[in-house]
Amino acid sequence: MGLIYEGISKAIALLAGFDPEVLSITWLSLKVSGTATLVSLLLGISSGTLLALADFPGKRLLVSVVNTGMGLPPVVVGLFVTIFLWRNGPLGFLEILYTPTAMIIAQAIIATPIVTGITVASIQNLPGNLKLQILALGATRWQMVRILIKEARLPLLAGVMAGFGGVISEVGASIMVGGNIKGYSRVLTTATVMETGRGNFDVAIALSVILLLLCFAINYLLTRIQQRERPR
């Protein structure tokens, strides 16, 4: 128990003292996972909407594949991104392995199926005749898609939360493609793994508390938006 207590007081000290290293690690975590989430929203909402509205043979199979992708193990993603970005890999010429960019790529790959899957479900959950109603109001196909996404905005917020929650907390891919380089590609999760390995439980606990607070703050914000719009 003493260990936890010590860790928490250390965390408070680190936070209160605005430790520059902790701040930069926190900021990088936010930046990498935030960017990855944005990328996944762009890809996931568009492909999810397309998937929900289009009708083609093999659609169910594809939706099942996407839904499976929602549980994609980060280490597997990390492995494949590493292979692709390796010096003599297919994308080795980009020379971005062990950079925050590589981490964003890996995290976006993890979050995209999550956002896509939730988008498919959200759009398909809208009333069946809504699409026809919008077309009957004179909308072009593009206007119809925009209105449908707008109508599905509340369940889509759940997609944002799930996507962001998935990547800010993952460690496997980040450590593999980012390398946990001090002051460059070290984020909250990779730093926690390292400090735990070194036996610096107090620092590890401090980092974990920060990670939890960060997750909570972001989700609280999104939930507020979601609940404010919900009917009472």
């Binding site: 009333p127 005749n129 809504l130 026809l132 109603q133 077309l135 009957a136 109001l137 004179g138 209105i147 707008k150 109508e151 905005r153 509340l154 719009e229």
Partner: peptide, 16 residues
């Protein structure tokens, strides 16, 4: 043609 007509369904299908 669709811009010259209107459709009302059994469900109101209102926007949020």
């Amino acid at each position: 043609y669709r811009r010259r007509l209107a459709v009302v369904f059994q469900e109101p299908l209102l926007f949020d």
